[in-house]
Design a protein around this nucleic acid. Structure first.
Lengths: 267, 267
DNA sequence: CCAGTCGATTCGGTATTGTCGAATGGCTTT
DNA sequence: AAAGCCATTCGACAATACCGAATCGACTGG
């Protein structure tokens, strides 16, 4: 097997690495042809073809009925569904998040870290009957979300990772200076609360609180999302959010709801 | 590379095949160790280790904080979320399903075929405020669900596939005789409706209708799920279901809401 | 506290296997 | 009707993933 290039020494199986890269590409631009993928990965089309066909055989990718373009496949949905079921955090959270939504009349999210971003693990919709997109599975840049700020504040490795890259500006109010973000984390730790006012989506703001596991680590964060017209959040909302975060942490076996400050950084 | 054995001639890349098999195993029993996986696949542990580590590097599997067991990883969630976004059917359905839920006061599901089963692509909860599990990503045996019966009725290949295996009995009322299922499909085609009364879950029953695409193929099915105490469904519910199915199909560009009968089978 | 077991992980040689390039076939475009 | 594009097939090569044995670490029982 020929091959591309080696950086240094991570032992990853080449064909699996390429397969996942293909999935990731399909994640970005929704539908691609073989040669398009081949160009993006700088590989011969025949190589890509083999990988794609293998993925197709398992339903991880599918070719759309019309022509010769490939998209992500349904098997991923089943896998992710099982993934969600394995998360204790999520199972324990659902009940409290539902209560939080009922009390505040707002949508709530539960988020965890994924490669420097925040991924939404659970989403409880606003209780009014309006139509709302399911947001579970969404990823949001850490620096532009209340959830992310909380997760960054209590995980030095995550912070170092996320803030080492250039920060995207999602709205005019997004903070893109790593140092300013880092400074904000100090306050997050003091209050055990993260705020975000139109930094990710115009017209939308949120508040988040940390969720602790058995051994006191912050493993997730809960947030309420509100229209920016309701900003700043009334004390009652913040209190309800705190309650929810504390209840979830208790259910997880956290000794007390005093999120442990991050271990000193290590490059 | 050594290798196991070849059946005949499907060109699949070995390491990718094994990787996906590992994911599938983790899907079944939620948490497994390396040697457990190795035993299940009849491979040396070191081989499995390499594959698992490769998957881990991309977040498709994760090892739980405690010990040395592996579980499915968060990257799957992001992938599946994007997968859902690529589905026109789902996007077009959401609005009508929400309306259907509001009108009937029942939970609604949208399902498609996946390797002989039905996978739930979208789920709109009952509008009362009760806490309900998100069901998106669930898979249900085709023969035991209203959704499945509809999909089977209009897709000969799917029917042949699903009914060739032994049918599991999920409740006392599950129909496990392939011939009886097949006979039922005849009626499904006549009415363009599928029924299921406590065949999958005790206390739960459902009705489904087909959703057609641009070229008249049945690509999905919508269902309302109700407590069995409300069985049989009132005409108003069935009418609303039909409306929804017709509206979605129209949105997809289906010429008329006359589901095309399946092409003659081909083994 | 130490011996013993089990499992995960590392390492290097080997030949199996994935990869590549060129040729084919189907489809749309000019 | 010709030309171009793209997915797909095929065969040969050698780079690669695989395997077995040895190491390390954790946990159990004496």
């Amino acid at each position: 097997m020929h091959g591309g290039r080696d950086e240094e020494g991570e032992p990853v199986i080449q064909s699996i690495d390429r397969a996942v890269k293909i999935l990731t590409l399909l994640q970005g631009s929704r539908r691609m042809g073989i040669s398009e993928l081949a160009a993006a990965l700088d590989l011969p089309p025949s190589t890509v073809h083999g990988i794609v066909k293998s993925l197709q055989a398992h339903g991880l990718v599918a070719q759309q009925p019309n022509g010769n373009r490939y998209v992500l496949g349904p098997a991923l949905l089943k896998l992710s569904s099982v993934y969600l079921d394995t998360l204790d955090v999520r199972a324990r959270s659902m009940r409290w998040m539902h209560e939080l939504s009922s009390r505040t009349g707002l949508a709530t999210r539960l988020g965890a870290e994924l490669f420097g971003e925040v991924i939404v693990i659970h989403h409880d919709r606003r209780p009014d009957g309006t139509e709302q997109m399911p947001e579970t599975g969404l990823t949001i840049p850490s620096h532009a979300s209340a959830l992310g700020k909380v997760l960054l504040a209590y995980d030095a490795a995550h912070a170092a990772d996320a803030l080492s890259r250039p920060l995207a500006a999602l709205t005019a109010d997004t903070v893109t200076d790593p140092e300013r973000v880092r400074a904000g984390l100090e306050q997050v730790r003091r209050e055990a609360l993260g705020f975000e006012n139109e930094e990710a989506v115009i017209g939308e703001s949120s508040v988040a609180a940390p969720v602790c596991s058995e051994d006191g680590d912050v493993v997730a964060a809960v947030a309420v999302v509100m229209p920016s017209t309701d900003w700043p959040p009334p004390d009652s909302v913040v209190a309800a959010l705190r309650d929810a975060a504390r209840s979830i942490s208790r259910d997880l076996g956290a000794p007390a709801w005093s999120p442990r400050p991050p271990a000193p950084e290590r490059a």
